[in-house]
Nucleic acid binder design. Structure first.
Lengths: 294, 294
DNA sequence: AGAGGTTACGGGCAGCGTAAGGATC
DNA sequence: GATCCTTACGCTGCCCGTAACCTCT
């Protein structure tokens, strides 16, 4: 009796094909190279045929390998459906490594996590707040499962769910007159360096105000608001985050004649391997943000 | 991370459902009851839900179990397709336990085994020759994989492939005159007791010749022909088997006005679990017999 | 008591990681 | 030598079988 194939072997096989090598697959699966070699060899043994031609630089699928590939995809798709329809998400403990931009952390992240915990009560959510470019790298390195950032990420491997835009507006301390503020002559607080809003703001200020404009980039948006409140800076920041400060009466909105374009966020995740949890989380992010932003 | 499901668990699950109990499934899979219990419990653990309600007499599927059942069937169907399209049958060693009636053993069995070995070079064929009723029991007890017998077997679990009929004819020693033979007054050699041809012959002789007819049932058809050759008996036997004896000139055909109806053989096998090998073997039996019987 | 399933526990083996070994550029 | 993959080998943990146990009729 020939030993039967199993899902782990097929999953491994798919990883090797998609990663284009055993070493890469081992990395992706958090295993060693020999472990992957063994799995593939066992799979080949159990079908009594080779799946790869071992060339000098890496592997190449055989015809049989191509055929098995299509079946392996069907198997894992089916496994994903079982995950969706049969597994009890109320009971199973899992982990979601979530990366979010500061803006999100300051607005609808709590509502998102609450909804997530409602749908997956045993889910552990690990949150990392960072600038979009770092989140992007973390996602591609598989250090996080889902990134909510200034997107989309235009890699073929990434799926992006568009989220509602954040409109920006100019804010200044109420100690300034509107006319004073409009000059944009005091320092401008802004998003951190290496972020899209920062670069766009810097370019626009250079063009519309002049090269001598001073920008204070900050990795913390609440710090920006504090700087504005204190009358040290003015800033173009998301309207959605200004509510508390308005209520305190410490800042006001003003219009110097232009504002940076709205912030387009996406919930982005790797398409392979397909995960119902991550996909659902991205959709929940969409639903929650839509509800919160109206 | 919840441990993943695997194909073995799903296969076991299917067996339990189809056998209607853990004990029966254990028997079918040649394992012990606790092993099956463990597999099912692990499967339940990995989906974090129960699949069966444990009642006093046996198990009953839960709603989740019903859903998983349909997926499990899809999984194993897919596995069967892989078996068909990916596994190298030229290389894999397998075993086919074949049960055949004497008539088949004497006619196209060699051609069948040759063709089988041509298509599956590494296949071990175990041959058991017995009367149809015993082959039927062996098949249902899973002691053989494929039975070629007087069919069909009308159990819901059995698939039957119809094979060409064996026409019967009356034979007598050339030492008898045709007129002598037609009386059917000497003993009649026939198939073994408990076979369909025996019962039919006995009933027909009772009606057409009388209750005093003597029948010599034999489990060996070649023994029947020898008895006929020796002038001790006449017999209604398959035309297809008479060729050698004709050529020797030791027997002749005669027609007492009626002959038993032709022998209808089938290649029969259990539908569960689906097996490409067995299914293909049955079809090869069909092809070979069609070719040989023309 | 017997027919069903479950729990307890020891042993064998599959499969992992570490480390060393090719092969090819 | 660098980059891949494979081989060798010890070890851990999974899963099976034996045996005892439970629970209903």
């Amino acid at each position: 009796m020939s030993s039967k194939i199993n899902l782990q072997q097929l999953d491994t096989f798919l990883s090797v094909v998609r990663c284009g090598g055993i070493g890469k697959a081992a990395e992706q699966l958090n295993l060693t190279q020999p472990a992957i070699t063994t799995r593939i060899r066992n799979l080949e043994y159990s079908i009594s045929a080779t799946l790869f031609e071992r060339t000098s630089r890496g592997l190449k699928l055989t015809k049989r390998g191509e055929v098995l590939l299509s079946y392996a995809e069907k198997f894992l798709h089916l496994a994903e459906l079982v995950e969706r329809d049969v597994v009890d998400h109320q009971a199973v403990e899992r982990r979601l490594r979530l990366g979010v931009s500061e803006t999100i952390a300051q607005s609808w992240l709590p509502a998102f996590v609450e909804k997530l915990n409602q749908k997956f009560p045993k889910l552990t959510v690990e949150i990392k707040v960072d600038i979009s470019v770092e989140l992007r790298n973390s996602l591609l390195d598989r250090e996080i499962d889902l990134a909510i950032l200034l997107g989309p990420i235009s890699e073929y491997s990434v799926d992006n769910v568009a989220l509602p835009e954040f409109e920006l507006a100019w804010f200044a301390s109420t100690s300034f007159s509107v006319e004073e503020a409009k000059q944009l002559k005091c320092p401008i607080a802004s998003y951190a360096r290496n972020t899209r809003p920062y670069r766009e703001l810097k370019a626009a200020l250079f063009e519309k105000v002049g090269p001598e404009t001073v920008i204070f980039p900050s990795s913390s948006l609440s710090a920006c608001f504090r700087l504005v409140e204190a009358g040290l800076c003015v800033a173009a920041l998301p309207k959605a985050l200004a509510k508390d400060y308005f209520e305190r009466g410490s800042i006001r909105e003003f219009d110097p004649g232009w504002t940076p374009s709205p912030l387009q966020f996406t919930a982005s995740y790797l398409g392979d391997p397909k995960s119902y949890l991550i996909e659902t989380a991205a959709n929940i992010a969409h639903d929650v943000s839509m509800a919160q932003m109206t």
